[in-house]
């Protein structure tokens, strides 16, 4: 049985229409027009226990709105949601003890107090037993290195430290489900890597189901095997990341170092997209010409010093999907 079930949910907001210019804003002080904004349109998906799902979409696509409905903060306009057998907006408090939530942009810790105090307060709020608390704190301290700043007030923590504390805080009560809203936003490379390792570890060791929204495609590539893509409130893709790569990853790039950077290539199915000194980038479609075939053709006329084949990054694939849309037949489930 899936741990999260979402069926045909919609969420509409009434948004005040903004008038432009000074006169417009004066006018809107007295008379406001409201327009209906459909933040989420007929979205359905289900997630099995232990899955790690990337929930992706451009700004304003409806990611946060969906997360807010799953956590019980918002009530859907229509449709049904079940999280661990509970309807989140009907039994919000009960749902809260089953989930951990991290909003990357805002901390849930007590800003002015030493970090350890936030953990102690959350222990009381979630009624975590002393033994469990001690055990969890030991594990998180070790993996996340909380020791170095437990006595520092939260407001003095670096962003990386704060995120580590925040994610540990969200897992104090051993929730089976973890929602991560932009967990790596603003972090440097090292901090991002630490965060990802930790997320992987709790997913593997504790079978925590993770739903994460992010703009960082590396997060998705490294953490998730499934992604749900939404745009303008609608689901455009739901399935394997490898399937997307398969479908959209046919266009590859061959980078060759040749003796003469001015050399011309007249090969069907491949075209030069970039030149830099003696290095040439050739884009080709895997269906029309294979990499070995292409290399063979080049060696007939040029001598190659070095070469690499670049796989398309998931990031560029996704931006292509948003630009070109996704064919219906690819939407699985």
């Amino acid at each position: 049985m899936p741990i999260i079930e979402v069926n045909n949910i919609n969420k509409d907001f009434m948004v005040a229409k903004r008038e432009t210019g000074f006169l417009g804003s004066v006018r809107s002080l007295f008379k406001r027009e409201f327009i209906k904004k459909e933040a989420v349109k007929d979205i359905s998906f289900s997630i099995e226990k232990g899955e790690m799902v990337g929930y992706i979409g451009p700004n304003g696509a409806g990611k946060s709105t969906t997360i807010k409905m799953l956590t019980g903060i918002l009530v859907p306009s229509s449709g049904t949601i079940k999280v661990n057998g509970i309807v989140p907006y009907e039994q919000r408090q009960k749902n809260a003890s089953n989930i951990g939530v991290v909003f990357g942009q805002r901390t849930q810790l007590w800003w002015d107090l030493p970090t350890i105090e936030s953990f102690e307060l959350l222990k009381e709020i979630y009624q975590v037993s002393d033994a469990r608390y001690k055990q969890n704190m030991e594990i998180y301290q070790e993996i996340l290195g909380l020791d170095e700043f437990l006595n520092t007030p939260v407001r003095q923590l670096s962003l990386g430290q704060r995120m580590r504390a925040d994610i540990a805080a969200s897992l104090l009560h051993d929730p089976p489900i973890l929602f991560l809203d932009e967990p790596t936003i603003g972090l440097d490379v090292v901090a991002k890597e630490k965060m990802r390792t930790f997320i992987q570890e709790i997913n593997r060791e504790r079978k925590v189901t993770v739903i994460l929204t992010t703009h960082d495609m590396e997060d998705i590539e490294k953490l998730c095997n499934r992604m749900v893509l939404i745009d303008h409130g609608q689901k455009v893709y739901d399935g394997d990341i490898s399937a997307v790569k398969e479908r959209f990853g046919k266009i590859r790039t061959l980078v060759v170092d040749v003796e003469n950077g001015e050399a011309t290539f007249d090969i069907v199915g491949a075209e030069v997209v970039k030149r830099e000194a003696n290095r040439v980038w050739l884009q080709f479609n895997r269906d029309e010409i294979s990499a070995s075939e292409l290399i063979g053709r080049i060696t007939q006329t040029h001598s190659i010093k070095d070469l690499t084949v670049e796989e398309p990054a998931i990031e560029s694939i996704i931006s292509r999907i948003y630009q070109e849309g996704f064919e219906e037949k690819l939407v699985s489930v």
């Binding site: 903060i73 809260a96 709020i125």
Partner: peptide, 11 residues
């Protein structure tokens, strides 16, 4: 947006 924090806790 900090008010949401009060809504994801079991109290």
């Amino acid at each position: 947006g900090t008010f949401d924090r009060f809504l994801v806790r079991p109290i």
